[in-house]
Amino acid sequence: MTTPVLRVQDLTVDFTSYTGGLLQRKERVLRAVNGISFDLNASETLGIVGESGSGKSTLARAILGLIKPNRGRVMWQGEDLTLLDEEELRQKRKEIQIVFQDPVASLNPRMTAGDIISEPLWTFYPNMAPLQVEERARGMMKMVGLLPNQINRYPHQFSGGQCQRIGIARSLVLNPKLVICDEPVSALDVSIQAQIINLLKDLQKKLGLALIFIAHDLSLVKHISDRILVMYMGSSMELSERDALYRRPLHPYTNALIKSVPIPDPKLAARVRQDNWLTGDIPSPYDPPKGCIFNTRCLYKVSRCETDVPALRRMEHGDWVACHRAEELDLTICQDP
């Protein structure tokens, strides 16, 4: 068994906001990420899935050190990133990179594609010859499937999918070991999404990257993840091997997420169209439910769920779940069409 490259332990992030006037200042604490732990091996892909407001983007930023966590550790190759100062952390950026959700917004509209891809090089290798930088940028463009002769174009001259390829090129130009993809395809057309997923898969294979792939639904992560972490309101609900998760989800929330993905088949859609999906919305994060945080929307709730917080525990086949009733519930998904 190899030691994991990334080990996240009990990571917790609170956002504090103030309301009221100068004199009656009230503090409101929102726990965006609540005690998340997981390991990630080299060249492995972890999918992180959850609805908006589940804290998955905050988790990504906390791992990168863009947000200071309130508690917990981010062990990167045996070194705790949360203890580093700003300059030391900056040096680690060479190894951990991120691809953002909105491909257009994440590119500076005043810079050319070449400059955007070259910027990390300027930053970390200020003495590199300009010609060499340009050559490297062209190479990256080619690698992500862009025409290198478009190096002088600006982001607004590319389509959404192409912009995301520029974003990927920028994240890979420093040869990182881990790339965190924060919903890299949710802003793209369905017809383009698969291109980007396949590109990431290829690059991962070619470059031996570890990937964290964040998504808001379970449809696309299926094709890229080895293991999947399901988050709800900042907490882990389930952490399972991919195939096991899609065959038999352990947590009712995972089950609901799987069932809510639309099926592109008129006959099946009509049949599956039952009350399987979640009712209601995510509760207010400022006032989370007592007991299991999912109990307000859970179809399998019992009285214990309203009082006791279920711990994330290991099931016998090695997957993790935070549900009191994980053993007794059989949520097997029927696969046959």
């Binding site: 389509s159 999918g161 192409q162 057309d189 369905v190 017809s191 383009i192 999404q193 698969a194 291109q195 997923i197 396949n198 379970l218 449809s219 696309l220 299926k222 094709h223 991919r242 195939d243 899609y246 799987i258 993905v261 099926i263 592109p264 088949d265 099946l268 696969q335 069409p337």
Partner: peptide, 25 residues
Amino acid sequence: QGLLDSVPRMDRPADDELHSIPGNP
């Protein structure tokens, strides 16, 4: 056909290749 193929299917095995329409709009 391309649009249909590019929809990820939950009712198909995960190892199926994910189809896309090549190129850009």
